[in-house]
Write a protein that binds this DNA or RNA. Structure first.
Length: 353
DNA sequence: TATGCGTGGTT
DNA sequence: TAACCAAGCAT
C-alpha cells in the first residue's frame, strides 16, 4: 500500500471533497441506485433523476412492487435503458433471494445484473461492507497520468490499472478515498486542462507532463441513418404509440411507429388505412447516439375519426401527459409539434422563459 | 474482445 | 463538423 499517496488524497478530501452529493447516505439501496445512474452519466444529469427516483421508490419494498413499464417511465430521458431493466431484475432477485434486504456480501452484490467490479466495489465500500478499490474513468485518468501509462484500451493495460488502483487504495477511510479520487478526477485532474497547480499529487512524483500520445485508434464508425417517424394524433389530443420490440435500439420504450425506409413507412400507412392526405405537417429532427447519426423525418398525421383506420384502440396516450417511457427523440418531436399547434403550450413555454 | 448501449457536453 | 468523453456492463 502506498501510504503517502493515500494520505495526500485524504488530506485534500477533508477540505475539498464533495461530501454533500444527494447519495452520500448510509442506505445501500440508495447508493446502488445512484451508482447505476452514474454509469457513463455525469453528476449534474443524474441529480434530478436520482431525487425523483428515491422520492417515488424510497426503499427496496416499494421498488419490488414497481412494474418494468413504471420504472422505464421514471428513467425516460436518462439513456442506457438496459440499466433500469437490470435494476428491475435485481430488485426481483433481492426480493426473493435476500428477503428484500440489500446483500452485504461482495460476491452477492457483484452477481446482481448490471453490477460489475467497479459498481460492486463502490456500493460495498460506500455502504461500509468492505474496503475495495474502484476503476472508473476518473481513477483511470489519474493513474494513467501519475504513472505515465498509455491510453491503450486493452486487457493488459486494464490489468495494470486495476493493480495500481488496488495498490494506492488504503484499507482505512477507503470510502473517503475512492470518493476523493472521483472528485479529483472530475474537478482537478480533468480531461482537458487539468489543474495540476492545486493537485494533491503534485509533489508526489507525478509523471504527468502532457498526455501520452493517444494510440491512433481506428476511426469511430459513425453511421448516418435516416429514420421515418410517424406522430399520429386524434381529435382527443391523443397520440398513437407502440412498444419498441426487443432487439431494437430503445427496446421496451414507447414511440410513434418508425421505419428505416420511406417505402416501409408507406406500406404501413396503407395497411393501417391511413390516407396520406391526412398529413398535417412534416419536420426534421437530428438525433445522435453513440455510433449513429440519425436524421429523423417526422410525419404528423391528424385523424378526425380513428374508427376508419386499423389502429388498435389500446395504443392512444394523452399528448399532454404521456405516461409511458419514451426515447429523447420522441420527446423532441412532441415538443416541436405542441409548440406549433397548441397555443396554451406555447404560452406555457414562454412563461417559463 | 470489440462492440452496443442514450444522452449531454466539450474541444 | 467530427471526435471524444462521462461514477461501465454484458455479451
Amino acid at each position: 500500500m502506498s501510504t503517502e499517496f493515500s494520505e495526500s488524497i485524504l488530506r485534500w478530501y477533508e477540505t475539498n471533497g464533495r461530501k454533500k452529493l444527494p447519495w452520500k447516505v448510509k442506505d445501500p439501496y440508495k447508493i446502488w441506485i445512484s451508482e447505476i445512474m452514474l454509469q457513463q452519466t455525469q453528476v449534474a444529469t443524474v441529480i434530478p433523476y436520482y431525487n425523483k427516483f428515491v422520492d417515488t421508490y424510497p426503499d427496496l419494498q416499494s421498488l419490488s412492487k414497481a412494474s418494468l413499464d413504471e420504472l422505464i417511465l421514471i428513467w425516460s430521458g436518462l439513456g442506457y435503458y438496459r440499466r433500469i431493466k437490470n435494476i428491475f431484475l435485481a430488485a426481483q432477485i433481492i426480493s426473493k433471494k435476500y428477503n428484500n434486504k440489500f446483500p452485504k456480501d461482495y460476491q452477492a452484490i457483484l452477481s446482481l445484473p448490471g453490477i460489475g467490479r467497479t459498481t460492486a466495489s463502490a456500493i460495498s465500500t460506500f455502504s461500509g461492507y468492505s474496503h475495495r478499490a474502484i476503476l472508473d474513468g476518473n481513477v483511470k485518468r489519474i493513474l494513467r497520468r501519475y504513472y505515465n501509462i498509455s491510453y491503450e484500451n486493452n486487457s493488459k493495460t486494464e490489468k495494470i490499472l486495476w493493480e495500481k488502483s488496488t495498490h494506492v487504495t488504503p484499507l482505512k477511510k477507503t470510502s473517503q478515498f475512492i470518493q476523493a479520487m472521483m472528485d479529483i478526477g472530475s474537478l482537478v485532474c480533468t480531461r482537458s486542462k487539468p489543474n495540476c497547480r492545486i493537485c494533491p499529487l503534485r509533489e508526489l512524483n507525478c509523471l504527468y507532463t502532457e498526455d501520452v500520445q493517444k494510440i491512433s485508434r481506428s476511426k469511430k464508425n459513425v453511421k448516418k441513418i435516416n429514420m421515418y417517424l410517424l406522430t399520429v394524433i386524434n381529435s382527443l389530443d391523443e397520440v398513437y404509440l407502440e412498444k419498441i420490440e426487443s432487439g431494437m435500439l430503445w427496446e421496451n420504450l414507447y414511440s410513434g411507429p418508425f421505419f428505416y425506409s420511406a417505402i416501409k413507412m408507406n406500406s404501413w400507412l396503407k395497411k393501417m388505412k391511413i390516407s396520406t392526405a391526412k398529413i398535417k405537417n412534416k419536420f426534421e429532427i437530428k438525433h445522435r447516439v453513440t455510433n449513429k447519426d440519425i436524421k429523423i423525418t417526422n410525419y404528423v398525421y391528424f385523424l378526425k375519426n380513428n374508427k376508419n383506420v386499423s389502429l388498435s384502440t389500446e395504443n392512444w396516450y394523452n399528448l399532454a401527459k404521456i405516461n409511458v417511457g419514451i426515447p429523447k427523440y420522441f420527446d423532441k418531436a412532441i415538443k416541436v409539434y405542441r409548440s406549433e399547434y397548441e397555443k396554451d403550450y406555447v404560452q406555457k413555454i414562454e412563461k417559463r422563459g
